[in-house]
Amino acid sequence: MKLETIKNAVLVWGIISHEHIACLKDEDALVIVPEQRPYCVGIHHNLPLLSSHYIPAVYCTDNMIGILFYTKKIKKTFLFCRKGSLRPEGMTGASYAALLSEIHRVPVCILAEGEYDLSGFDRDASTLAGHNFVVDERSKKYIIHSERETIGEEVPGSEV
C-alpha cells in the first residue's frame, strides 16, 4: 500500500482485546498495525484478529509510525493497556506510541488489553523469527530489555 492511499487511519498499540474490537470497527477507518518488537504482537495477534473481523488493516514496522503522524494519516490512537493498574501500563513501546500521538495532538483512547500468552515469545531485541543478529555471544549482554511501560505522564488524565 502506498502512503498516498491512506486517507483515514487509526493506530493501535498493545494487545487488541476481543471485548473492544467493536471500538475499532466503529471508527470505520484503516487500522495501522505496527510490528511491536520484540514480541511482534502486530503480526501474531493484532493483524489476524482484525482480519477475522473484516476490519481493514495495514502492517508497518514500529519506526514507520513517525512518518504516518507527520503526514497526518492517523486521526486517533488506541492504546491497549493492562487492566486495573494504577497508571496505564502498556507493552514495550507504549511510551513511543503515546508520546508521538500527544506531540501530534492525536487523541489517545486507552482500552483494556486482551489476554494473550506471551511467555513463549522471543523477547530479545537481537533476534527475530529465529534469526540471530548478534553473532558475538559476549555482546548479548548489551541488549536492552523492557516489557512494560507506564504511560500516565504521556497521556494526562488517562485511565484504563
Binding site: 514496522t61 514500529d62 519506526n63 513501546g93 513511543y96 548478534v134 536492552i144
Partner: peptide
C-alpha cells in the same frame, strides 16, 4: 542495542 520503539523509554 534497542528495539526502535524503546527510544522513548
Amino acid at each position: 542495542l534497542l528495539c526502535d520503539n524503546q527510544a522513548a523509554l
